[in-house]
Design a protein around this nucleic acid. Structure first.
Length: 389
DNA sequence: CCTGAAATAT
DNA sequence: TATATTTCAG
């Protein structure tokens, strides 16, 4: 699954490279561009999804991958054309329209309320240190001097949350030294537990990269005490991480295929906002799915290199793995020998929630169980939002 | 409201 | 030392 910048026609070359390897490719974008999607589909892309991606989009993505994989090359040639569909508006696939959009505003909001995140939030409270009266930094000096934009750090509105685990007791927010001067306590740093991160991921995924801004994310996460700046900071780090991994994948892919060299050269500094990938999206629902990592470079081109990792194997029969998996598995001598290291990092990144996923599935699934799996997925997600009532 | 940077904390 | 988070400032 590749997140592409439809404004950059060169993104199409990325599509070609993957297709040359017979890797089914599904494109995603936050914006829509009929021309671009049309061209991509003509090239052979399976789908073109508009983000944010819905649960139903994923469901059909899976089925498509499976079907695709079962066909022989020749059959594929014939089948490709007919199977292509433009999914500019999710729901273009007839049957999904009526289905519940798991990650719509309400369900997310609800599920979030229930999860008492506070229990999972842990502040590194031990480190709260006094800034000894002697130690003065530029800032402390400035503050002592004028303190214009004094923040209500000491007010108990956001520092009194249980997960903020105050060092001592609340109310002792101010410390006085022998001079009677009041000092600010540095707010204890937040710990992004997997649960918290999960909420973050869910929020971002449901918003889509365009709207995934700190304020909205914070709002969707609905975690008391969490500040917008913290979310912003986390978002920034997250983006950087995804970007780096993606860059590596692209780099390795380029160096081994040659076809992507053009893309690599165009890649100065990264701009644009990496979007949340479907892997996170899937992970958020405690499901596993075709994970993707976004790749993007300054030229505006961006792509998500699909991954499926172990989870995907559950859908494979015997040795017949979906072609896309082959890319992530130790490449067969004959196939792409691209980026083992990059894939390793990618897999590690994507496997973070492996356990939860596995627990949820409870057992191996066979391709034939796809629908059952989807049903399970739906129920799991629904259940989650119900409990939160 | 956002984010670059400095200051800090890990 | 390298990263991550909080604060400041614009």
């Amino acid at each position: 699954m590749a997140n592409v910048d439809i404004s950059n026609i060169d993104s199409l070359s990325f599509v070609r490279v993957l297709l040359k390897e017979e890797i089914p490719i599904i494109l995603m974008s936050s914006r829509r561009n009929e021309i671009f999607s049309w061209r991509a589909l003509v090239e052979g892309a399976c789908f073109f999804l508009e983000k944010p991606i819905s649960f139903d989009d994923l469901k059909y993505v899976w089925q498509h991958s499976y079907i695709y994989k079962r066909r022989s090359k020749t059959q594929l040639e014939d089948a490709r054309k007919p199977e292509q569909e433009i999914l500019l508006n999710r729901g273009n696939i007839s049957q999904v329209d009526a289905q519940v959009h798991i990650f719509d505003e309400n369900s997310v909001k609800e599920s979030q309320n229930a999860c008492n995140m506070e229990q999972h939030l842990v502040m590194a409270n031990d480190q709260i240190q006094e800034q000894g009266g002697l130690i003065k930094t530029k800032r402390s000096l400035d503050d002592d001097r004028g303190g214009e934009k004094k923040r209500n750090l000491n007010s108990d509105n956001e520092n009194s949350n249980s997960f903020m685990v105050p060092t001592e007791e609340k109310g002792k927010e101010m410390n006085e030294n022998n001079n009677g001067h009041v000092k600010k306590k540095r707010k204890p740093r937040i710990v992004w537990t997997s649960e918290l991160h999960l909420k973050f991921i869910e929020a971002v995924s449901s918003l889509g990269d365009i709207k995934a801004r700190p304020k909205l994310i914070l709002q969707k996460m609905n975690v008391p005490g969490l500040t917008q700046r913290q979310v912003a900071s986390h978002l920034q780090n997250y983006k950087a991480r995804v970007r780096q991994i993606s860059d590596n994948v692209i780099r390795d892919l380029s160096s081994n295929t040659g076809s992507l060299q053009t893309l690599e050269r165009i890649k100065p500094s990264v701009v644009g906002q990496p979007t949340l990938n479907s892997n996170d999206f899937a992970a958020a629902g405690k499901t596993q799915g075709a994970g993707t990592v976004q790749v993007e470079n300054a030229s505006g081109i961006s792509s998500n290199v699909a991954n499926s990792g172990k989870s995907l194997k559950q859908f494979s029969e015997g040795n017949q793995e979906v072609k896309a998996i082959a890319v992530l598995e130790p490449p067969a001598a004959s196939s792409v020998n691209a980026g083992k290291s990059a894939y390793a990092a990618l897999l590690k990144f994507l496997d973070e929630d492996e356990e939860e996923i596995r627990a949820g599935l409870g057992g191996e699934l066979k391709p034939a169980d796809l629908d059952r799996y989807c049903e399970w997925l739906r129920e799991a997600l629904m259940e989650k939002s119900e409990h939160s009532e």
